[in-house]
Write a protein that binds this DNA or RNA. Structure first.
Lengths: 233, 233
DNA sequence: GATATAATTGTATAAAAAACAGTTATGGAG
DNA sequence: CTCCATAACTGTTTTTTATACAATTATATC
């Protein structure tokens, strides 16, 4: 077949906004960019979409390159295409965000990229329009987590309710009453109580829970409404 | 500056999913595609992103080309990039959806494209992956309309509460109690009651309302929750 | 054994959503 | 002119859900 003639062809990139949670605060994984322009500056992990791969495949490839992880939560966020967003050459970038269990992350793989986890509240200046990408990602996560149980993707298989609450409090930047939180989260039927406890955080220890995966997939579309004050989203 | 060498460049297109509401049902505006491949088949209105324009600009340009309208509600939906979605040449498409007041739509402008409004429930087969685009657009509209007052974009400046209710019932494919509906919608403070009535639909006539634009913008982020049964989203 | 720390549990109140039916205005038919 | 059919309009009760709030328990450590 003939090609579409006279049309502009351009570069298509993928940028990954990678979130983690260490039990205390939300974190963002950044790399030191290895080539010009902006070489040596903090940047999201990214790369160009190859001729033979889909955009989703490209995003997964790029995420794996940096983290060594496959099968993690990865969602297309938004496509950024201001003509001069990359001063070198017109490049449209499809941003994805990933939620990963920070414990599964293997440091060694990413040493090539000089990757580092930053507290989300203390991120360095990012290149190009990546600050805007990050802002949108934060917004989207809140939006989605208000109704869908995506935040479990940030926790290890076994987690405690206080851990889960801390995570929600981080994401929504608020405080939640402990009694009401556990009541609601248990009422979803998504959690299975285990017999052992996490003794790290307290003397008494908190019971571990794990996801009931059947209910998880069934209820993914309609989970609960956790936002204390939706005005701030 | 030098260019990024050895990277694949590709075509970037925009496709517009254009919704309207005639007071009875939701409708979708389609065109007969004017060039190969798939020439003559029903298609979303689309076009290629030019070298000098942003993707948003391209979407607005393409929407105006077909409808003559500017400044309408247009939101980026999702980017579709399967390698062979267009058999002619690799083309990545950024899908947008538009909500327009069907009364403002000017038929004459679109005659070049052989455009037609289809009932959303009776759309013809679409080309490429556009059926998937449409499904995602419907999903997104429901999702967003459940919390944000975007559906007003589909109505004329003056509208009645029964009209508004019909619209919500269409979008969510459900029925809502009249008393509860008007109670909730009036409680938002977004509506200003006018003195004249719409006599078209009934003998008694229904009062016209218009949006309180100040409240509209202020409350856009947090409107209300109209979904009767969130499970079906 | 005393103490400090964080986990765990329940109830009363307030707010929001859902269920539900009768009255009113008016154009058109007879 | 009266009657009738149609759709608009309005209010209360019940149920459900969310919120506010404090005492007890388990255990490591001193």
């Amino acid at each position: 077949m003939l090609k579409y003639s006279k049309q502009t062809r351009l570069l298509l990139a993928v940028d990954c906004i990678i979130f983690g949670f260490d039990g205390e605060v939300l974190k963002l994984l950044l790399i030191k960019r290895g080539f010009q322009p902006e070489k040596g500056n903090w940047s999201l992990m990214g790369g160009f979409v190859q001729g033979s791969e889909s955009i989703d495949q490209a995003a997964n490839r790029i995420l794996k390159q940096l983290t060594g992880l496959e099968g993690v939560y990865l969602e297309q966020l938004y496509t950024f295409g201001e003509p001069n967003r990359d001063p070198m050459e017109r490049t449209v970038s499809v941003a994805y965000f990933a939620l990963i269990d920070i414990q599964k992350y293997q440091t060694q793989i990413s040493s090539d990229y000089h990757a580092e986890w930053f507290q989300l509240k203390r991120t360095p200046k990012l290149i190009f329009d990546q600050q805007e990408m990050l802002e949108q990602a934060k917004k989207r996560i809140r939006y989605k987590a208000a109704m869908h149980p995506i935040l479990f993707e940030l926790l290890p298989t076994k987690f405690t309710i206080p851990q889960l609450q801390t995570l929600y409090e981080c994401v929504f930047n608020t405080t939640i009453d402990k009694r009401n939180f556990s009541k609601r989260v248990l009422a979803t039927g998504l959690l299975i109580k285990l017999t052992d406890k996490d003794k790290a955080g307290s003397k008494r220890g908190a019971y571990y829970y794990q996801l009931n995966m059947q209910n998880y997939y069934a209820k993914f579309q309609a989970f609960m409404n956790f936002i204390p004050n939706p005005d701030t989203l």
